[in-house]
Amino acid sequence: MADLNINIAGIQFKNPVTTASGCFGYGEEFKEFYDLSLLGGIFVKAVTGSNRDGNKYPRMAETPSGMLNSVGLQNKGIDHFCSHIYPLIKDFNTRVIVNVSGSTISEYVEVAARINELENIPAIELNISCPNVKHGGMAFGTVPETATEVTRAVRDVYKKVLMVKLSPNVTSITEIAKAVTNGGADVITLINTLLGMAIDAETQRPVIATVTGGLSGPAIKPVALRMVWQVYKAVNIPIVGLGGIMNATDAIEFMLAGASVIQVGTANFIDPMAAPKIIEGINEYLDRHNIASARDIIGALKVS
């Protein structure tokens, strides 16, 4: 049995496998399938300043080896989160990290400041990369100056571990990674979904109501791996990697490219047992390769 413990920015994860925001609700639904304490951590659904109904139906299209979504950050806002959700999740025996989104810098700051007060949340993941909202979201994550600005503004009020989740919809991911590092990020999460589109040729209409949406699943894995690798070489802060991870081999690939922790996203929709299976598979891989610790494979890609 290899050592699966990972420490990033002072947070101890019992293994590198966590679940991605927007793909795991608040964990409740998965209790019916397995013991959540198996997980390294849970990144819960994005929280915004006030209630958001999200986008119109249809919000989803199946695409080759992936799916397109345009949920649009549906959630009941930070007040409801603090009063109703936090009590349900605060005693999970795993790391619970909250994804934070907003339409304005002040909204991000307001939500981050509120979560700073919640004792059992060791970190937030700043979502400057949602492609499915009209204002904010990805707009903050595609221009280096605004990425620095929003990160810095949140850094000023948020005293625990600040993770920033990047959008792949940029020309240079390393520029954005450096920008949020300069803004005070402790950890970088990447990637969010790729902006995409699906058309029904028979009806000659877009498949989802918002016309464009975020592409996830194995279709985006090569892009995600490339970006994790580039960012790993460009900055000195830890990386949480995601994008199309379906099994342990995928997870290992992300760690070799430079991710310290990985997130399982869309795979949760297809196999509710995906995350625990990945933990087992990583353990089996490390034993098979006589590697003592999961830490030893982070960024261990042999390029030459």
Partner: peptide
């Protein structure tokens, strides 16, 4: 409705 997960986490199949 079109759905991805079927167990309440993707929020794709909503109806008003």
């Amino acid at each position: 409705n079109f759905m991805a997960c079927g167990y309440g986490v993707c929020l794709c199949c909503i109806t008003q």
